[in-house]
């Protein structure tokens, strides 16, 4: 019983980090049609920036806020001054983001070094909570709540506001949105920056759990691509469901077949793509 509960909770908390990370990636892909290879870099840089700020100030929330803002600005600059010049050229855009991935990785190595580091948890979430016969880390429980909250807020933003309607319209037919007088270049920059900020938030949330180290950018980006592909490109709801699938499959898989750990995270993708090539919630 406690085996199931603990692994389910581990899977869920990991899934929420994955979701926050992947939500940005799927939004950016859905609207800008960019396969952003550097999305994992935003995760890693976000985590590292938060780490430095928390070490200097001892405030987790301040670390999270500064990481999100800094990475959003970085994303905005990157989109505006480089990617926007390659509008609608998908391969050059992807290659450019791959270049950024390497640059950011070296930059992070240069500033923060090569030793794995854990982002300190907020003080109130240290320790464990006892329930149903187990003692479970409070931070991981909080992650589940935060992930659901982010999902609800994102959903409300996309479905309930005019900005959200503009973004969805842009996903459907970017050109028509332009012909209606909407400043699509500005929307593109804003959404790219927002997606980068979500990735940074993922890095801060995942930092105490998964740690920050050279190569973490690549590892999480691969899982985020799995989530986005399984969920259907551009779909927040799909990303949420796929994060749960991948998070749980990864945890139970690792528990049952430790030697197959990475493989079990990929299994949901293989099955879903075999049955639904455009993903669970993909646009046809």
């Amino acid at each position: 019983m406690s085996f199931w509960l603990i692994n389910a909770l581990n899977g869920l908390s990991f899934a929420m980090v994955l979701f926050v990370l992947s939500a940005g990636l799927t939004l950016v892909f859905g609207l800008l049609r960019i396969i952003n290879m550097a999305h994992g870099s935003f995760y890693l840089l976000g985590g590292y920036i938060a780490l430095s700020v928390i070490q200097a100030s001892d405030h987790f929330m301040l670390g999270m806020a500064s990481a999100c803002v800094a990475v959003m600005l970085l994303g905005a600059a990157m989109q505006r001054w480089t990617l926007a010049r390659l509008h609608k050229q998908e391969l050059p855009q992807s290659l450019l983001t791959l270049g950024f991935l390497f640059m950011f990785a070296d930059l992070a190595f240069w500033i923060w070094g090569g030793n794995p580091q854990l982002v300190p948890k907020p003080a109130v979430l240290e320790g464990a909570i006892r329930f149903a016969g187990i003692a479970y880390p409070a931070y991981r429980l909080a992650l589940i709540g935060i992930g659901v909250l982010v999902a609800v807020l994102l959903w409300a933003l996309l479905e309930g506001t005019r900005i959200g309607a503009v973004v969805r319209a842009g996903m459907d037919d970017e050109e028509m949105v332009r012909a209606m007088g909407i400043n699509i270049p500005l929307v593109f920059t804003a959404v790219f920056a927002f997606g980068a900020g979500l990735a940074a938030m993922g890095g801060v949330l995942g930092g105490p759990l998964l740690g920050l180290f050279p190569g973490a950018d690549f590892e999480v980006a691969m899982l985020a691509f799995v989530v986005v592909t399984v969920g259907g490109l551009g779909s927040i709801r799909g990303a949420f469901i796929a994060s749960l699938l991948v998070g749980l499959a990864d945890n139970f898989g690792t528990a049952w077949f430790p030697q197959l750990s990475l493989f079990t995270a990929i299994i949901p993708m293989v099955i879903v793509l075999a049955l639904r090539p455009s993903g669970l919630m993909g646009r046809a």
């Binding site: 969805r168 459907d172 028509m176 209606m180 909407i182 400043n183």
Partner: peptide
């Protein structure tokens, strides 16, 4: 002029094939 600027000075289009937004 970019298309969105033109649309802002009161030019509107009913395009061929309707081009409504399916998800809105």
């Amino acid at each position: 002029w970019p298309a969105h600027r033109l649309a802002r000075c009161a030019v509107a289009l009913v395009p061929q094939g309707r081009r409504i937004f399916p998800s809105l």
